[in-house]
Design a protein around this nucleic acid. Structure first.
Length: 480
RNA sequence: GCCCCCAUCGUCCAGCGGUCCAGGACUCCGCUCUUUCAAGGCGGCAACAGGGGUUCGAAUCCCCUUGGGGGCACCA
């Protein structure tokens, strides 16, 4: 099996395209074949190096490694279509020589006009085929004279183009519904249809796994392959990803670029897992499935036909599950840069130790990596009180005595550790006859600034005795 | 307008003619655990789009309707 992911670098890697890449990768890895990444950059005007880089970065981040293609090379040259225009021209010319394609002298503006008119009249907007009837010798003469012409494929009529799609089964398109499409523009550049079809054949692609939006273009690709006397690959058209409103997932549903999710604090494994569940199911009751399991169980035969709505909430839940499953050291390590970015300074050794100590407790309550920094900020920066928390907790009659009791109790703790701190504070609660809630919440707000924080005793331990007492003192004064 | 695709809880999936008054997950709502918030445990709400067939028997097969989606460029 040889499958390919062939994005056009005319935009950032879209989450939907990432899923297409993933399904290609899963199918190939399951079959033990080769995964190829190609750059379909025939649209030189819209393609940029930045987009190309974003796409490759995204694939690498997801861990979708490729065996051949852009940046890794392989036996087929550059894997960038912009480097292969000569090859496409060669094919286009041979198709023309064989009478399978013909020159079209219509101007773009005329075409636009005619298309608009046809639409208004309720007719099919495709090319009407008028240059097809021009005598081939005459056409050749005009081309030789330098008249500007594109090349169109002469779609056989009457007739039908049929193929068997792995997920859609038998497909048949009446050739009358396929217009004579352009394969080579008048500037000599190839269109997507030509370049993609030629490459799939030249590279020995066995399975074209792509979005359903290309389903109705497939007959065109098959016709080109036929013109080349080659066998077409097997086609697998994946249903599209939908937004919450049921239309194709796009910018209007928010930022759908993969890197947006990465920046938002999602982890790659969770994204891979979640995406794999859109249009496929590993079977069984558990939605959390390891990458290896997914590879082992994946089959194109099990891919669903119906479109799937992308649900960010479930992705978030899954991300939390993956974060909780990380090993604590790895979690702490991935936190460091985020916390440092938040503080806008590097962490000192002692601070890193405090972070590492608290990390496992933060880990349990984190859905997105990016929400960690605010949770642990109290350990490092200047304390900022959350007004709502303060008003809710510090205005109770018990707050003052709880803080006073805590100051005394914590001063006497010999071994500054969470268990010893807990013991001392519980004794304080007992002697003051305060409930845990009434007695501990003021301490939490005093020390972390918020009524919501990581577990209190560990937080105190991480902060250190001196800082803790100082904050309790400041809070007591602030109560007045 | 024409061509094509799709149709099980709000969402993602299981179901591939009887074991389904339909199962799991997310969300939501209770309860529980608890120093807060989470996480966890327990429980709950919630679906076979409609109509015809086929069959002893249909969520499962066929047809129609309806609804949704995609495509119809010298973009990809």
């Amino acid at each position: 099996m040889r499958a390919r992911f062939a994005p056009s670098p005319t935009g950032f890697l879209h989450i939907g395209n990432a899923r297409t890449a993933l399904f290609n990768w899963l199918a190939v890895r399951n079959a033990g074949g080769e995964f190829i990444v190609r750059s379909d950059d025939t649209d030189t005007a819209r393609s940029t190096a930045e987009f190309a880089q974003d796409i490759l970065d995204g694939l690498r981040w997801l861990g979708l490694d490729w065996d051949e293609g852009v940046e890794v090379g392989g036996p087929h040259g550059s894997y960038r279509q912009s480097d292969r225009f000569d090859r496409y021209r060669e094919v286009a010319e041979s198709l023309t020589a064989a009478g399978t394609a013909y020159p079209c002298f219509c101007k773009a503006e005329e075409l636009d006009e005619r298309r608009k008119k046809a639409r208004d009249e309720g007719k099919p907007p495709g090319y009407d085929g008028r240059c097809r009837t021009i005598d081939s010798d005459e056409a050749a003469t005009r081309v030789a004279a330098g008249e500007s012409a594109s090349l169109r494929l002469a779609v056989p009529r009457p007739g039908a183009t049929t193929f068997r799609d792995v997920v859609r089964e038998d497909m048949s398109f009446d050739n009358e519904t396929i217009d004579d499409f352009v394969i080579l523009r008048s500037d000599g550049s190839p269109t997507y249809h030509l370049a993609s079809s030629v490459d799939d054949i030249d590279y020995g692609i066995t399975h074209v796994i792509r979005g359903e939006d290309l389903l109705s273009s497939t007959p065109k690709h098959i016709l080109i392959a036929q013109g080349m006397g080659a066998e077409s690959p097997t086609y697998v058209h994946l249903s599209l990803l939908m937004g919450p409103d049921g239309s194709k997932l796009s910018k209007r549903h928010g930022d759908t670029s993969l890197h947006a999710y990465r920046n938002a604090g999602f982890v790659a494994d969770a994204v891979v897992n979640y995406l794999s569940l859109l249009g496929w199911s590993p079977g069984g009751d558990d939605d959390i499935i390891s990458r290896d399991d997914a590879v082992a169980r994946f089959s194109l035969d099990d891919v669903l036909k119906n479109p799937a709505v992308f649900d960010p909430q479930k992705l978030e839940w899954m991300n939390g599950a993956y974060i909780r499953a990380m090993d604590p050291e790895g979690f702490a390590a991935s936190l460091q840069p985020l916390v440092e970015a938040d503080l806008e300074r590097p962490l000192e050794v002692a601070e890193m130790a405090a972070l590492t100590q608290l990390a496992p407790l933060v880990q349990e309550r984190t859905k997105l990596l990016t929400e960690v920094a605010p949770q642990v900020r109290f350990l490092f920066g200047d304390l900022v009180y959350d007004d709502k928390s303060w008003n809710k907790v510090m205005t109770t009659p018990e707050a003052r005595s709880a803080l006073g009791g805590a100051a005394a109790a914590l001063s006497d703790v010999e071994d500054w550790s969470a268990p010893a701190i807990e013991e001392a504070l519980r004794a304080m609660l007992g002697s003051l006859e305060l409930s845990a809630r009434k007695g501990l919440q003021p301490i939490r707000v005093a020390v972390t600034g918020s009524s919501v924080s990581p577990p209190l005793f560990e937080s105190l331990e991480g902060l250190g005795r001196e800082q803790s007492l100082e904050r309790i003192r400041v809070a007591s004064e602030r109560i007045g």
